[in-house]
Design a binder for these strands. Structure first.
Lengths: 235, 235
DNA sequence: GGAATAGTGTCTCTGAGACAATATCTA
DNA sequence: TAGATATTGTCTCAGAGACACTATTCC
């Protein structure tokens, strides 16, 4: 790697050409109280102060985009992400009145216990239910909708790829409730059981302390958390 | 819209922050001689002269990315695109030795008769067969692979969403050969017929001038060309 | 025993895929 | 008529979905 700045025939470097600003906005999803929720951020200073938005920040010069996403979560909301995935670039020229800002939207999905309750709002029908009843700033409503689609596709055929269940061992009912929260619709017990069984490992244990027949405990198959999401952009 | 430049509390505008360069690279695919082919571009001047690459260019300040893609095709290869779709951002910090360049990869798929034969190379197994037997510059090999996956997903359940067939009316065998070219594998006639029939309109016409029973002629159902690709980024 | 929940048997429906029979043209 | 291609009938297989029956626990 050379430290010299590359210049073309007319002596210009890349920095001499006009460039848009590049931001990364992150829809950090989780499941709380049996519902999908998204982490939002009250803009305190600078542009659009007072409005609710997804956490976002501008890309640093030598940073990978996924790292930008993690940094946005840390700096703007004080939370850690898990594995941000790219959703796409939002490029409407008028999406930010400050000037030309491209947003590389990201999504992540983490257990709720790592997140401050105060910043989470429920997602109903693909929309964020903000305290003031309004909408997310910029085009973040569009980003959220795409993020929800992403999460639903990710969970449709896999038990728990992002490790949202609190314990290592869980019953099929625990898993069913998680999936109902992500999908936003009710599922059939028997069909669901058969669909998930291939991705689970039986354990000798049984659930305790409830009414009715104790349920068998399962754990995720090795590698379930590492399954690639084939629909998401990845370099 | 104000023409004033926005400034934050410390008087800085967006342009005062470091920004990466943003390029758009386009995998323009077509079908020629019963095979998928990609349009490549011999870099003549500037960086990496002499190497083969996908056509690409830097984003202008107030341009939509899809327009950047069309401009790259026009300026670098003198061809027109149809409807570029975003594949994702390639952000490896070392993907371009000149400096930090993000590439928003795009893909497009157009009939071969609009393209100069000299710039087309066959795509075999997701790789471009370049005249010198080498590889595409930068990470364009990765972009091409993703572009091929995109095209295959687009054609799997639809007759001819990008209008690659030369005539308005065509037989099912014409369509079958097109699909075999895109998918890179042979298909069963009867299964294929039944899968496609829902998206086609029968015409009274029959094929002429061949051996065997003349085949019925079909045309695309209205709107087939406008089918949204739900997997591709879209704002 | 009764209530509640877990787990299984089985039926239907749909679609993919494959094979083969029938239909209709040209030479 | 022979050869070639188009079109359709039908069989199998797999999976989703739904219903209902059986099993096992706590009270």
């Amino acid at each position: 790697m050379s430290t010299m700045v590359w210049r073309d025939d007319s002596g210009r470097s890349l920095a001499d050409w006009p460039r848009p600003s590049v931001a990364v906005d992150v829809a950090l999803l989780t499941v709380r109280d049996g519902r999908l929720a998204v982490l939002v951020h009250r803009r305190t200073d600078g542009y659009a102060a007072g409005a609710w938005s997804l956490p976002g920040t501008f890309v640093h010069e030598h940073e990978r985009l996924a790292d930008t996403a993690l940094r946005a979560l840390r700096d703007k909301a004080g939370v850690g992400g898990q594995r941000p995935e790219q959703l796409g670039v939002f490029d409407d020229p008028r999406r930010d009145a400050r000037g030309r800002v491209l947003s590389v939207a990201h999504v992540d999905l983490v257990p709720a216990d790592r997140l401050p309750d105060a910043l989470l709002v429920p997602v109903v029908d693909g929309r964020a239910e903000l305290p003031d009843g309004g909408d997310l700033a910029f085009d973040h409503g569009l980003i959220l909708r795409r993020a929800v689609d992403w999460a639903r596709a990710l969970y449709r055929d896999r038990p728990d790829p992002r490790g949202l269940l609190p314990a290592v061992e869980f019953t099929l009912l625990d898993l069913l409730r998680l999936h109902e929260a992500v999908l936003g619709e009710e599922l059939q017990k028997d069909t669901f059981r058969r669909r998930m069984l291939a991705g689970l490992v039986e354990t000798p244990g049984r659930s305790r302390g409830s009414v009715g027949k104790p349920a068998r405990l399962f754990r995720r198959i090795d590698g379930d958390g590492d399954v690639r999401d084939l629909t998401a952009p990845r370099e």
